[in-house]
């Protein structure tokens, strides 16, 4: 039963990802990305990570992608123009993709303790997750929150700078 659900949503996820690349209109691409994110959430759920699944839907599909579609609608972006690409992009792009894939694959194969999650694992409760997050992994968690804070401050600084120049010019 779980395996059927897994295959179904893994297929949906891949189909969404391919559709994202093939669509020429930005809003269709954004919607395909939503399909990818929601099916990823279902995959998390089949692996027993219920909080992660909910957070995936609420944060990525519900907030970040709304912002994406918001920007697409606001700019009223037209259709993408298809070109075959330049010689530079072909000659650099494909080797770069191959190198990145090789690096990720080698790191994943070498590292210990990965790949121990199974489809029939019991559900990890939010309590266990928060105990792990706030006791054992508290330093990485706090560092990540500082990173997000820096990004927010950067955005505010950028927005304020434009404001100041306009006032100075008047």
């Amino acid at each position: 039963m779980l395996l059927i659900i897994f295959i179904l949503f893994a297929g949906l996820c891949l189909a969404g990802a391919i559709n994202l690349l093939l669509q020429t209109h930005p809003i269709n691409s954004a919607l395909s990305l939503i399909v990818v994110m929601v099916s990823l959430a279902v995959l998390y759920l089949t692996l027993g990570a219920e909080f992660l699944a909910a957070a995936q839907v609420i944060v990525y599909a519900g907030a970040i992608m709304v912002l994406f579609t918001f920007v697409v609608m606001l700019l009223n972006a037209g259709k993408e123009e298809r070109t075959l690409g330049s010689f530079a992009s072909w000659s650099v792009g494909f080797p770069a993709v191959a190198v990145i894939l090789a690096v990720i694959a080698s790191v994943l194969i070498k590292s210990q303790g990965l790949g121990t999650v199974h489809l029939s694992d019991k559900i990890t409760s939010t309590q266990e997750l928060s105990a792990m997050l706030f006791k054992e992994l508290v330093l990485p968690f706090e560092v990540t929150s500082v990173l997000v804070l820096i990004a927010i401050l950067g955005a505010v600084a950028l927005a304020r700078r434009g404001d100041g120049e306009r006032k100075g010019g008047q």
């Binding site: 909910a54 839907v57 579609t69 609608m73 409760s125």
Partner: peptide, 19 residues
């Protein structure tokens, strides 16, 4: 087990209908 988050998540998907 995470019913509250399910409601919040589905409500947040509902924005797309209007958008």
């Amino acid at each position: 087990n995470f019913g509250l988050l399910v409601i919040l998540g589905i409500t947040s998907i509902g924005i797309y209908g209007i958008a």
